[in-house]
Amino acid sequence: MKIDRIEIGEVAIPLRTPFKTASRTVDAVNNILIRIVTDSGTAGYGEAPPTALITGETKASIREAIMQYIAPSIIGMEIFDLDTIMQRLHASIVNNTSAKAAVDMAVYDLYAKTLGQPLYKVLGGAKRKIETAYTISDNPIDEMLRDSMQAVQDGFSILNVNVGKQRLKDVDSLLAIRKAVGPGIRIRVEANQGWSPQDAVRIISLLEDKGMQTELVEQPVRAHDLAGLKFVKQHVQTPIVADESIFSMKDALHIIQTQSADLINIKLMKTGGIHEALKICTVAETYGVDCMIGCMLESKISVSAAAHLAAAKNCITMVDLIGPSFYKIESYEGGPLFTGGTIKLGDANGIGISAFPKAHFKKLGVIK
């Protein structure tokens, strides 16, 4: 069974409310989608969001990377020759990790479909249900309280709260949310590189002193500031997660060996897809380090792929896949079932997606 063609398009899905972090505000998901079709007609699906502030990619660069470099390198290859496909994919162009991730997950989707199994089973997993956090945007306190209470009402027991814009005032927002939702809700803090190392230690220490019971703090300092990240970890009790600081297995190994963070956040758009994410999981398992899996305002295709990886790997103990609950519409067919804070993996082959979305989709081209 050979790769016959790769179809590429784009989707625009409005969000229910704007997504706000310390670094950006987004009103809609505007992502590149691909479909890899074999000579037998079987199709696999992939997706890439343009997240220029993190990966350096735009819609135009993702489209060109796939059409001009990645797709031509793997057209005509046998789908079961997975290792060679991945070697060619990653050698076709440097960086461009989101473009690579879209093709990677579509290949894995196809691979699992040809084996007649859900992807999580092919990857060695047996979990059929995982629990995800709900992301709270960085807004004025009254809006953050409203969104937090609504998320709890909708069935989420874990909140991932975005802060980082106001430094010490972030403490007030977080304490207000804790008081509103009560002690039974797990709260994670996503600082989005918004603090200096000194401010991070001051803020996290204040939260600890005031009984915030923060489950973890994610990427408190700039991605390149590994010394600052380690400084924060050494001076607080709350677990520290490295997110934007880790793209590759090499990055993960360095963070772990230097003890610069307690946990690792895997995102397929940073790693370049499932193939490289599995290497990070192997490193984490070797050193006994837990991982989180997250996403970058992706729609159901790539969120589903990430959910399958989370269900397959025991080292992934924390999930932040906001999924379709964040969007005004959801026009995909198939995939895992998102109900409140629960993601249920089904029995469908591959990642479970069976077609491009029916609405808000535009076809861009075909590579043969």
Rank of each mutant, 00 (worst) to 15 (best):
residue 1 M to N: 07
residue 3 I to K: 00
residue 6 I to N: 00
residue 8 I to L: 09
residue 9 G to Y: 10
residue 18 P to W: 07
residue 18 P to H: 04
residue 18 P to A: 05
residue 21 T to M: 01
residue 25 T to F: 05
residue 25 T to G: 04
residue 25 T to S: 15
residue 29 V to K: 05
residue 29 V to G: 07
residue 29 V to M: 12
residue 30 N to W: 01
residue 31 N to G: 10
residue 35 R to L: 03
residue 48 A to Q: 09
residue 51 T to P: 06
residue 55 T to D: 10
residue 55 T to Q: 11
residue 56 G to I: 04
residue 57 E to F: 09
residue 64 E to H: 08
residue 70 I to T: 11
residue 79 I to Q: 00
residue 80 F to D: 13
residue 80 F to R: 13
residue 80 F to C: 09
residue 81 D to N: 15
residue 82 L to N: 03
residue 86 M to T: 06
residue 88 R to E: 01
residue 90 H to A: 12
residue 90 H to R: 09
residue 95 N to E: 12
residue 95 N to G: 08
residue 97 T to M: 06
residue 97 T to A: 08
residue 98 S to H: 02
residue 101 A to D: 04
residue 102 A to Y: 00
residue 103 V to N: 05
residue 104 D to A: 12
residue 105 M to S: 12
residue 106 A to I: 01
residue 107 V to H: 00
residue 116 G to L: 08
residue 116 G to T: 06
residue 117 Q to M: 14
residue 118 P to L: 13
residue 118 P to A: 10
residue 119 L to N: 15
residue 120 Y to N: 06
residue 120 Y to C: 08
residue 122 V to A: 07
residue 124 G to Q: 10
residue 125 G to K: 10
residue 125 G to D: 03
residue 132 T to E: 09
residue 138 D to R: 02
residue 141 I to Q: 09
residue 142 D to L: 07
residue 143 E to Y: 09
residue 145 L to S: 08
residue 146 R to F: 11
residue 146 R to Y: 11
residue 147 D to I: 00
residue 150 Q to F: 10
residue 150 Q to W: 01
residue 151 A to E: 04
residue 156 F to H: 14
residue 158 I to H: 05
residue 160 N to F: 06
residue 161 V to N: 05
residue 162 N to T: 03
residue 163 V to Q: 10
residue 165 K to S: 14
residue 165 K to E: 04
residue 166 Q to N: 14
residue 168 L to W: 08
residue 169 K to I: 05
residue 170 D to Y: 07
residue 173 S to N: 13
residue 179 K to E: 14
residue 180 A to D: 06
residue 181 V to Q: 11
residue 181 V to Y: 02
residue 184 G to A: 12
residue 184 G to D: 13
residue 186 R to C: 02
residue 190 E to W: 05
residue 192 N to L: 04
residue 195 W to Y: 15
residue 196 S to Y: 03
residue 196 S to K: 08
residue 197 P to H: 08
residue 203 I to L: 04
residue 207 L to C: 03
residue 208 E to A: 03
residue 212 M to D: 01
residue 216 L to Y: 09
residue 220 P to A: 13
residue 225 D to H: 15
residue 225 D to L: 15
residue 227 A to T: 13
residue 228 G to A: 15
residue 228 G to D: 06
residue 229 L to R: 02
residue 234 Q to T: 12
residue 237 Q to F: 15
residue 242 A to M: 06
residue 252 A to H: 05
residue 253 L to N: 15
residue 254 H to D: 10
residue 256 I to S: 14
residue 256 I to K: 10
residue 262 D to G: 12
residue 264 I to A: 15
residue 264 I to Y: 06
residue 267 K to D: 10
residue 269 M to F: 04
residue 273 G to Y: 01
residue 276 E to L: 09
residue 283 V to E: 13
residue 283 V to F: 04
residue 285 E to I: 03
residue 293 I to G: 12
residue 303 V to Y: 01
residue 305 A to Y: 02
residue 305 A to C: 08
residue 305 A to H: 06
residue 306 A to L: 09
residue 307 A to E: 11
residue 308 H to C: 06
residue 308 H to N: 12
residue 311 A to F: 01
residue 312 A to S: 13
residue 313 K to H: 03
residue 315 C to D: 00
residue 318 M to G: 11
residue 320 D to H: 04
residue 323 G to M: 01
residue 325 S to K: 10
residue 327 Y to K: 07
residue 329 I to G: 00
residue 333 E to W: 02
residue 335 G to F: 05
residue 336 P to K: 01
residue 352 G to I: 11
residue 353 I to V: 14
residue 354 S to L: 04
residue 355 A to R: 12
residue 360 H to S: 05
residue 360 H to I: 05
residue 363 K to V: 00
residue 363 K to H: 14
residue 366 V to P: 00
